[in-house]
Simulated assay, not measured.
Amino acid sequence: MKYDPAKHHRRSIRLSGYDYSQSGFYFVTLCVQHRACLFGHIQDGQMHLNSAGLMIDRWWRKIPDKFPHVTIDAQIVMPNHYHAIITIPVGADPSVCPNPELTPPTDPIHPIAGIIALGERTASGEHVGSPLLAVSLGRMVQWAKTMTTNEYIRGVKRGEWQPFHKRLWQRNYYEHIIRDEKALTNIRNYIADNPARWNRDQLHPQNPSKY
C-alpha cells in the first residue's frame, strides 16, 4: 500500500499502552505554529533553506549526539514543518546490557533488523527494547523543540528571523510507528518527494485541511 499521510499519519494521540522508548522506527513530524513558513521556500520542486532552516536542520542532526545509539534516518526541513524517521535500535547501549543478543544491528544495509525484533524476548525471557533504553521518543522531540526554539528566539532578538506567535512549534507532534520494511521504504520516498508535492501538502499554509 502506498503511504498516505491522511490515513497513516494521524494527529498524534499516543498509542495507548505503547512504550515509545521501545526499539523501532518512528516517523515524526513537527509543524510550525499556524503553519507559518519560517524556514525557507520551495522552488522548482527543491527545498531552499534559509538561515533559520539551516539552524533547525543542525539541531535535529544533533539528536544522536545527545541520545547515543539513536539515529536519524531520512529527514527534511520544509518551509513550515520537519519530517524525520527516528530509529531506536535493538538493545541500546551494550554497556548497559552486555547480552550480545541485544546488541544493536551494525550493518547499515539492514536497518529493518530493529523492527523485526520489536517486542520480542530473548532466550532468557527479557524484553528487547524499552527496559534497556530509558529515552523515549517524546523526550527526544521535546529536547529538539526546546533547543530550536531557544536559538530561534535569539535570532529574533538579533533581528535576523521573523517573529512567531506565542510558540515556534505546535504544541503536539505527529508520529507513526513504522512496522515493516515496505512501510519504511514508502515513508522514505514520501520524505524525499515532499518538496515536489508541496502545493498539495496538507501542511501547506493555503491548504484548507485542519491536519
Score class of each variant (00 low, 15 high):
1 M>C: 05
6 A>V: 07
7 K>L: 14
9 H>F: 11
12 S>K: 12
12 S>H: 12
14 R>L: 15
15 L>I: 09
15 L>M: 04
17 G>Q: 02
18 Y>H: 11
20 Y>G: 03
24 G>L: 12
25 F>V: 01
25 F>I: 01
26 Y>H: 01
29 T>M: 05
30 L>Q: 11
33 Q>F: 10
37 C>Y: 06
38 L>R: 07
39 F>E: 03
41 H>S: 14
41 H>P: 01
48 H>L: 08
51 S>Y: 12
54 L>S: 10
55 M>K: 04
60 W>Q: 01
64 P>V: 09
71 T>K: 07
73 D>I: 04
77 V>G: 05
80 N>I: 04
81 H>G: 01
83 H>E: 03
84 A>N: 03
84 A>Y: 07
90 V>S: 12
91 G>T: 09
92 A>C: 09
95 S>Y: 12
97 C>M: 10
102 L>S: 02
102 L>K: 05
104 P>S: 15
108 P>D: 08
108 P>A: 07
108 P>H: 07
109 I>P: 00
115 I>P: 01
118 L>G: 10
127 H>Y: 10
132 L>M: 15
132 L>D: 15
133 L>A: 08
140 M>A: 02
140 M>Q: 10
142 Q>E: 13
142 Q>N: 13
145 K>F: 04
150 N>A: 14
151 E>N: 13
153 I>T: 11
155 G>P: 00
156 V>H: 06
157 K>N: 14
158 R>M: 14
159 G>P: 00
161 W>M: 06
163 P>K: 03
164 F>V: 04
173 Y>K: 15
173 Y>A: 14
176 H>G: 06
179 R>I: 12
181 E>V: 08
184 L>E: 14
188 R>H: 11
189 N>H: 12
194 N>L: 03
198 W>E: 10
198 W>P: 03
203 L>P: 00
204 H>F: 03
207 N>A: 02
208 P>D: 14
211 Y>W: 15
